[in-house]
Write a protein that binds this DNA or RNA. Sequence first.
DNA 1: CCTACCGATCGGTAGG
DNA 2: CCTACCGATCGGTAGG
Lengths: 199, 199
Amino acid sequence: MAKRSAPGAEKGPKKSRQQRIFEEAVQLFNKQGYAGTSIRDLADAVGILPGSVYAHIDGKHSILVRLVEHGVEQYLTGTANLSGTAEEQLRALIDAHLSVIAANVDLALVVFHQWRHIEGADRDRIMAKRRSYEQRIRDIIDRGISSGEFRPDIDPPLAVLTILGILNWVPEWFSPNGRDPAAAVSKGLAQIILAGVLN
Amino acid sequence: MAKRSAPGAEKGPKKSRQQRIFEEAVQLFNKQGYAGTSIRDLADAVGILPGSVYAHIDGKHSILVRLVEHGVEQYLTGTANLSGTAEEQLRALIDAHLSVIAANVDLALVVFHQWRHIEGADRDRIMAKRRSYEQRIRDIIDRGISSGEFRPDIDPPLAVLTILGILNWVPEWFSPNGRDPAAAVSKGLAQIILAGVLN
DNA sequence: CCTACCGATCGGTAGG
DNA sequence: CCTACCGATCGGTAGG
């Protein structure tokens, strides 16, 4: 009875049931893992019966692929238009990366932990996008070394992995409701990262 | 027939079947996740029947708890006796941490990805050990700032999370058979980390 | 989105 | 460590 309210009475924007399923999947995949989450768990979470889930999705696996791929793409689109000096570009990338994480920490955790459950062509496609993002960082490092902004003794591949490690570890501890807002974390991490690479 | 050879004929040291189960569990948990790995998978991997697995272990969950707890403890024991200046201690910790990872990258991945499947008292106990390790890093940072070795404008909690991020991201890309030996990675990461904190 | 259901697989156990 | 088995749950489907 309380389920259906008048269309104009809802507080937030209307969410499709499919959208609800994806959102609940993020929480459940995070808590129980992909394999440990059943279609029945998902159905319970959105308030429908197990068989009805298939009216909205192709299968359990396609939920995971869509979540991870969409998640990865956010990092790419957030850093599509970098300009300025290498230092400015690196600062902008750090900020964009942390904005994506902070916007949905749970999705970030799904992206980094559950992608191993994806195989074959889906995995190849997603990995290619991740590598493309890593290359974006690599290009900034190379440019910074060439321009003399960054220390010449830096090992570029290792620097990329270091920066990725710092940034991708953030979802493990960051809380949107914690005492550190995302902007403060971004500023602090940018300071540490830049201190390590600047000439 | 080929299964049982004369006791002295084996190449490596004798491994108990229990040990074999734990080793195969590391691989399987990594590939399929804890929930996605069945007792039957484990039994197949060690060459016994599903029911026989319970002659060696208490249950599926106890395998996970033991792997993760043992894994976490390695980081603590590897850094139990640090001495010298803050810089020396930090270098030693980085080296010890990477030695533990390099000794068993797959176990490291299980530790960092599968601990979420552990709940209750087991989880509390393991998390306490993790926090104890983090405090060990924190103490080094604090000491380095006090002594003037490290930059005074460092945010200690953030520095700890940065270092943990760099180190704990290593299992995601490190290959023991890759072109970078563990010692080279340790040296490179130490250089980058120290550059970020040294005064 | 529900009813009703499928074959497969799950963790685990009794008794040897 | 095997034989033989248990009740529970799994992803997914036909037909409405």
